[in-house]
Simulated scan of single mutants.
Amino acid sequence: MKEINITQNEENQRLDKFLFKYFNTAPKSFVYKMLRKKRIKHNGKKAEGSEIIKAGDSLQMYLSDETMGAFMEEKAVAKAERHFGIVYEDDNIIIVSKPAGLLVHPEKAGEKDTLIDQVLYYLSQKGQYCPSKESSFTPAVCNRLDRNTGGIVIAGKNLRSVQELNRIIAERKLKKYYVTMVRGEFEEEKELFGYHIKDGVSNSVKVLKKEVPGAKKVYTKVRPLCVKDKFSFLEIDLITGKSHQIRAHLKSMGYGVVGDRKYGDERINRIFREKYGLNNQFLFALSVAFEEEGGPLGYLYGRRFTADLPDIFEAIKRDYFGSFDLDVDREGF
């Protein structure tokens, strides 16, 4: 019999979910069978799997070493050179600035050097993540950006922080601000509503004015920061977070994002590609603001974290709009 003591970094999750991660190559049917046959017990008693485990709990495994070893694959951290910037870091979370062109997670088997690979290697080098000592937890990224959109991404370093970040995001208590440059003069602050529908074949979306079957309602706030010579520099308060929402919503209003190969104007894109080497959309996740007062991350309440605009975006902004501060007052926005 092997006994496992639950630590603070493993508590507040269902027992079955912990076991799925502990026996990371086992089918779910194996876990439930072992629970049903009392080969796995929780605090010495029969368990169903739905129990919420707490620090100080113990699990009794009446399994042979061979059986356990067959369903446990040792985790390892691959070396991955860091290409992200660090915006903020403490013992619970790390806020990074992802460069455009970098995947957050692998999309295909075998893809390496993604953002999560780089974060895990960075944390392992700091001694804040050791896979051989973590039976069921891996630090995780809690928000995502498209490959060709750069900017702020947040990861939790421990289970409680990951759970809390996921909750805060789901309850919209984390404000996410983007900046973008569009063709057209967007002169007034607006709240945009629409219906988002995705075409899985072309991996593109449309935002419609009227509801159609399968469409999801989306909400985007847009604030012009500078408008000049048929171009606008906009700040976006992303309320809902659907795929390609900002780009498609602005396109539906007649404002193509500069550099956007999927929804933008190819003639305009060519000008910026030839003059500045811009090969992706001018869209950047600039900042996040925490609006959750309590809980494990309550110490971040009222704080806003802002990433540096990439050099190429800064050069375009300066040439087209002159110099102005992006760290603007957002009261009422």
Score class of each variant (00 low, 15 high):
F282N: 06
E191L: 14
I94H: 09
E211Q: 06
R304M: 06
F231C: 06
S132M: 08
Y178E: 02
I271Q: 14
M34K: 15
K17P: 07
R303A: 05
P296G: 12
R318H: 07
V212W: 04
G277D: 07
G256N: 13
F321L: 04
S323F: 04
E73S: 13
L208M: 08
D325Q: 01
E266Q: 10
F231N: 04
K46H: 15
Y219H: 13
V162L: 01
E164Q: 13
K126Q: 12
G264R: 02
V31T: 14
T67Y: 00
A100W: 10
A315I: 09
E314S: 12
S243N: 14
K228V: 00
E164R: 12
S204N: 08
R144C: 02
I268V: 13
K209D: 15
L145R: 01
A100N: 10
E11R: 13
F71N: 12
A289F: 13
G44I: 15
E274A: 07
D325S: 08
D319Y: 01
T180I: 01
Y263Q: 00
H105G: 09
L165I: 02
E185F: 10
V179T: 05
N269F: 00
I316D: 03
G110Q: 10
S29L: 15
R144L: 11
L300Q: 04
F20Q: 11
F233T: 00
S135K: 08
M253I: 05
Q13M: 12
P213W: 03
Y263S: 01
G256P: 10
G214E: 06
L250W: 00
R144Y: 05
G322T: 09
Y320V: 10
E292Y: 07
L174A: 07
Y255Q: 05
K175I: 15
S252M: 01
E211F: 03
